[in-house]
Design a protein around this nucleic acid. Structure first.
Lengths: 112, 112
DNA sequence: CTGTATCCTGAACGATACTG
DNA sequence: CAGTATCGTTCAGGATACAG
């Protein structure tokens, strides 16, 4: 973390890298979608089936959000029935260690 | 990450460690408060001054939230004027690597 | 199958005022 | 100094219906 991270902060969402990452992961279900994709390519329906309590709209929102932040890409195949796959970009795959860090802290036994 | 992380997920906020961590860091300003405390003990006023755009109420909310999740402790000293210090617990200090991981990803140049 | 549009509700946020 | 109480607004989440 560079030293200018120490600068006085007037806003919580400037160009701060921490906020960029939290922005990409923001919202319910987001990390679960990413985790599913870390296991491999998935279609819309496969994601919906893996996350049964998640509505179509929110899944759509999450996929758009993650595409926007460069975490995943859509792979739309022509023909019928329409079939779209989602897979992580290299940048998206690099979220693996981030989720690992989040996991480790949350699983911490508080001693030490 | 243990293998049962692969289990089908019906809710986004079960006892999943990732969600525990995100829950602790949830909300605007939260990571900035933690980052300030990573630099050392701080009083309410010092935190408020470091984060000028943050209202008393929200700062109070954040400190309560972070105390609740075991990230920091209050150190209230008797006498007048009242003076309260906040400092991270060992668990709170272990958020350092987590914020580092968030920082690194957000600062990533997208190549590789 | 793969989404988008619309509406509704509850929680988070921020301002202000007030207390020990 | 160190907070809490109250209130209004905004925004994300979820249900439902519909479209390419």
């Amino acid at each position: 973390m560079p030293d200018d991270a120490r600068a006085a902060v007037a806003e919580p969402t400037p160009s701060c890298p921490v906020e960029i990452t939290l922005g990409a992961l923001r919202g319910r279900w987001t990390t679960l979608v990413v985790r599913e994709l870390l296991r491999g390519e998935r279609t819309f329906t496969e994601l919906a089936r893996a996350l049964p309590a998640l509505s179509d709209k929110v899944l759509s929102d999450r996929l758009a959000q993650l595409a926007e932040s460069g975490v995943l890409v859509r792979d739309r195949r022509p023909g019928w029935p329409p079939r779209t796959s989602y897979r992580l970009t290299p940048r998206g795959r690099r979220l693996g260690p981030v989720l690992q860090a989040l996991w480790d802290w949350g699983a911490g036994d508080d001693r030490g």
